[in-house]
Structure formats: C-alpha cells, structure tokens
Amino acid sequence: MENVKQTEKKKKFKKVGAKGQWHWMGIAGFTYLCLWVAFLYFRLGWAFVKSIQDMSDFLLSGSSATAWPNKFSFAAYAKVLTVIKFDIRGYDGSVHTAYMFEMTLNAIIFSLINTFVNLIVTMCVAYVTARHDFWFNKVLVGFFYFQMLVPIIGTMSSSLKILKNLHLFDTWLGFVIQRFNFFGGLYFLIYRDMFKKLADSYADAAKIDGAGNWQVMIQICFPLVKSIFMMGAMTGLISSWNNYSAPLLYLPSHPTVSYGLFIFNNAKSGGDNAEFAYMPYKLAGFMLLLLPTTLFYLLFKEKMLGATSTGGLKE
C-alpha cells in the first residue's frame, strides 16, 4: 500500500516537474497573463468603484477619476434602471419613449431571433447536405465557401434599401427573414462535419422502426450534436445581448439594452438625460449591461469552454 502511495507521489512530482511545466515559455506566458488579468480586473474594478460613488461625493471631488469615494451608494443603479429613457423616431415618423423595460424585452427578442433562427437553419442545412445525397449539396456548400472567401464590401446600403422597399425595415419579421440563412461563422462546417461522422446505424435503426426523415433528423440526429448546439446557443445569446450595431441599423425603433446604453452614453449635460451625463451613472449603466452575460458565463462556463464532443459512435 505504501509502495502504491509512493509511486503516486512520484507520478505527481513527475507531472509538475515535467518538461514544459516551468520552461521559460511558461514563465514568460505566466507573467504576461498575470499582468493581463490584473489589468482586466483593474479596469472593471475601477468602473465598479466609480459607479457606486455617491453623486454628491463625486461632484465634491471635482469629478475626479482618481479620487477614492468617501461615500458609497447604489442610487445610480436604481436611477439607471427606473429613470433611463429616450425618445425614438420610427421609420414611419412616429415618436415614442423607450424605457428600460422595453429595452430589456427587445434585447431578449433580438437575442432569441438572432441566435436561434440562424442556428436552427444552419443545423438543418448542414444535416441535409451531410446525410442526404443530392447534387444540389455541392451548390449549397459552394455558396458557403464563396461567401466566406470572396469578400463583397459595401452591400449594407443595398440590404437596407431592399428591406425598406419590401416594408420589412425596422420590423421583427424583417429581422427574422434576414437571419434565415446558414451563412456567418464556421458553424455550418462544424455541424456538417459532425453529421457526416455520425454512424448510419442510428438512422437505419429508426427507419426500420418506421421513423420518417423528419423524425430521424429531429429525434435521432439533432440530440447527438446537442453539446455543440448548446455551445453555439450560449455564445450566440451572449454576443446578441452585447450587439448594439445591428439594432441600430436594422431595428432603430426597437432599442435593445446595449443600443440604449450606447445612446445613453452620448448623453450630454444639456439634453433630456442631462443628469445622466456624469460618469457614475454611465458606469452604473455599463455594469448593469455586463451583469447578465457575466452571470450566464459563470453558470455555464464549463459547457461553453468544453462542449466539443459528440454522442454516438464514430464510423
């Protein structure tokens, strides 16, 4: 028994002392990364500290960015959540005031459409091109590679023009249609590769039991790539939540939280949001925007960083 323990100790020692563990590359990388992490936290920490500085204290300090707060208060957070608003002029000329509740709701709808419409279409097209033998597959895959390799710049104006002409500009339906494709990112190739690697025996067994093509796809094959789907969904939801430029361009009268805070950041001392022109308010708004994605990341970190395996047998 003691021998086994000694061997395990030796193994542990070997693992730590093995080549590559404390090589100069490791030391240099470690130092760089430590500084990098320290600076990342310094930025976030500084922003948080200033966001909880009491407003009168901030003004008394001469609006200083370096002064340590004498008085802390979460009033800025409460105000940002309840008072923040701005007027939006729709494409049809109508004006309405958007509050935080509406922006949150819009952000949720936007994130769901932006993530799932594209992801599901991508998955379906990847599935049929990988598992059903049709000559048209070559056209689809060719299209994908073409758009990936051949950069066509400046088509945003034409996209906006067609959306406006079809009366789809600034509508949720228009945005759903825009996202109804399998382009963008490498997910199409990843899914296709995974569906190709899935053993035929699953689909064959299901077909013998009387399953149709839809059932094989939805009930048999999709669950086998669930981990990659989850990873795509999670990263997609996070990036959609943070996206401010797409709503700004295509859904100007449906502001999301990110878009709203971008506009809010431009608040000057003379406008409607005059009192929000001060740093603690703006930083409180930023911290609130970071909160959901940070919590989401902390909760699903393992899945996001490690979900790269498929179910089933590899042929």
């Binding site: 563990q21 490791g26 990364l33 990342l40 943070n242 990110s258 925007l289 970071l290 994605t293 960083l305």
Partner: peptide, 28 residues
C-alpha cells in the same frame, strides 16, 4: 502550463463581456 485552467476562463472572458462597455470604460 502554470495556471492554464484559470487563464483559459480569463482569456475567454472579454468575448463574453460587451465590447462596447469595455471600449467605453477604456475611453474613460
């Protein structure tokens, strides 16, 4: 290499955090 698991999580963090927010904090 040393601390790889921690750094993996940390290096991925800016992808999760809003680029706009980090950018505007940098501006301040």
């Amino acid at each position: 290499m040393p601390g790889w698991s921690f750094f993996k999580g940390m290096l991925y963090l800016p992808t999760v955090l809003s680029g706009m927010v980090l950018g505007l904090i940098n501006k301040y």
